[in-house]
Amino acid sequence: MNLIEILSYGFIQRALLAGTLIAVLCSVLGVFLVLRRLSLIGDGLAHVTFGSTAIALALQLYSAASLLVSLPVVLLASLGILKLTEKARLNGDAAIGIVSAVGISIGIMLASVGGGYNVDLLSYLFGNILSISYEEVIIAAGLFCVVMVLLWLFFHDLLAISFNEELARVSGVRTNLISAVLVMLTALSVVLAMKLVGIMLISSLLILPAVSALQLARSFRACIVLAALQGGCSVVAGIFVSFLTNLPTSAMIVMINLLFFCCSCGVRRLITIRNIG
């Protein structure tokens, strides 16, 4: 099958467009999250989304309307993770674990006491990169713009708190505010992007491009750019390889990210060996 033909399908065009935008924004956010030891926040917030979607369905709010419940709940949960790390002196992974477990149990409880639903909850929860509609491409583009503009505005503040929180505060950075901005941007991205491309893709795109870039980057700026490049390229490559191999697209994108990560580790080893030799 040739390239032109593959590109003639509307769903492929939309997958490439929305997928790349989401991948780039997840990869960039991921660099900050990995450095702040909040790598698993994507999975955690996805579980909270499951819980909040159960609330929404119990209130008879479907698809788009369910966001009215999910968004505020997940934003609050993200702040909850932050508060747990600050006030209860928990590590990020423990805080995420707590919030995620509570989220999923609320979902399971509601699914049981609510007397069931009109639809299967799980099947509505996760999108698929191949089933993105025109409206959702616009949502993805809007999300991309919002996240990128905020990251641009707060870039140095985010860099400062990731580097060292004490030093950041003495430089006049409002560390609590900036941390809140970071996790809330993540929450927004998880809630919206999960419905578009599914949670497996989101959580892996928050981690893998960032850790690969950390292997190779020679500056913070380069790290961000490398992560964004890997995220974007992995989606494009994943869609085409999925076409050639007839394997599921999301899983293929994750595997390509893993491949990139292995290559980064290899290159880093080579550089280290050469420097020693």
Binding site: M1, I6, Y9, F11, I12, A15, N118, V119, D120, S123, N128, L130, I239, F240, S242, F243, L244, T245, N246, L247, P248, T249, S250, A251, M252
Partner: peptide, 28 residues
């Protein structure tokens, strides 16, 4: 989950078979 290739194949199948309706399952 379907692959991109299977999606495209299905689109061709719909077009070539000349049907006017595609079926979906309730609840899902």
């Amino acid at each position: 989950e379907p692959s991109a290739a299977r999606m495209a194949e299905m689109v061709r199948q719909i077009r070539s078979s000349g049907v006017h309706y595609l079926f979906a399952e309730e609840l899902l």
